[in-house]
Each structure stands twice: as structure tokens, then as C-alpha cells.
Amino acid sequence: MKTSNDCVNNNYLEYVKSISPKTKQKRSLLRAFWVGGVICLVGQGFRYLFEYGLGMSGDELSSYVSMVMIFLGSFLTGLGVYDRIGKYAGGGSIVPITGFANSVVSPSMEFKTEGYVYGTAAKMFVVAGPIIVFGIASSVLVGILYFIGFRIF
């Protein structure tokens, strides 16, 4: 039986590649840059607010800032605005923490029709699940390596 690999017709794929429309490189990079920069500026704004306005510092400060950013990302997703930003900015809105919030909320909203347990809750991490998995797993690895390191040296 044929597998997908047997079907590969390199001449055809080359030809398709040669006539496929190209992403507008400069434009997309510029958009990612300024939107990404602005989102970070918003984060910095909250940082100043919490630092000088509420007298927070250290881990507490950065935790609250990321909480606010996640709130904004989720809210804009709910309003149906974030995917517009994403379409415009690409990487500029995917990479900030607001994009993480977007990837949590969007499947959750989408699958609400399948119920509040198996839809909203279970499908919440369809897109963002790997981030939690790899993040926590790698932090445990780093922690253990450092623990061994500290005990040896």
C-alpha cells in the first residue's frame, strides 16, 4: 500500500512553491514589532502603577502585572477583539502573555456548546496545554539539576 511518503512529487511541490504567494516580510515584521512593543509598554505601565502607586515589589509586583495582562488578554478575546489584533500583528500578539491568555480563552469559548464540563473546562488547554506541560516539566528539571549542583559544589 502507498504511504504518504510514496506520494511525494518533488517536481510538483517545487513548482507549487515557486508560484505560491509570499508573506509580506517587511510589513509583517514591522507590525509584530510595534504591536509586541506596545503590549510590553502596557505591562510596564502597570508595573509603574503597582510599584509607585501601591508600593509593591519583587515577585508580588511581577505576578500582579502578569495577572492584569492575562485579564486584559482574556477580556479582549471575549470581546472578539484579540483575534483581530492577532490577524494584524501575528507574532506581535502571540508571544506576549496576553496571547497565552487568548489561547486559553478562545477554545474554551468555542467549545462551550459541548457543555460546561467537557466543553468549556476540558477544552481550555487544547492550545495552551503544551505550554503548561513543558513549562512545569522543564522547571522541575532545572530545579533538580540545580539542587544536585548546589549539594555537590
Binding site: 509584530a32 514589532f33 510595534w34 512593543g37 510590553c40 509598554l41 510596564q44 501575528g90 508571544v95
Partner: peptide, 13 residues
């Protein structure tokens, strides 16, 4: 903040 944040996003793009 703007330049570094923007640069990281540009790498992603």
C-alpha cells in the same frame, strides 16, 4: 521596554 519587547515578537514573526 518597547524595543526589547518588540524585538522578541519580531523574532517570533
Amino acid at each position: 521596554v518597547f524595543v526589547v519587547g518588540g524585538a522578541i515578537c519580531t523574532i517570533a514573526q
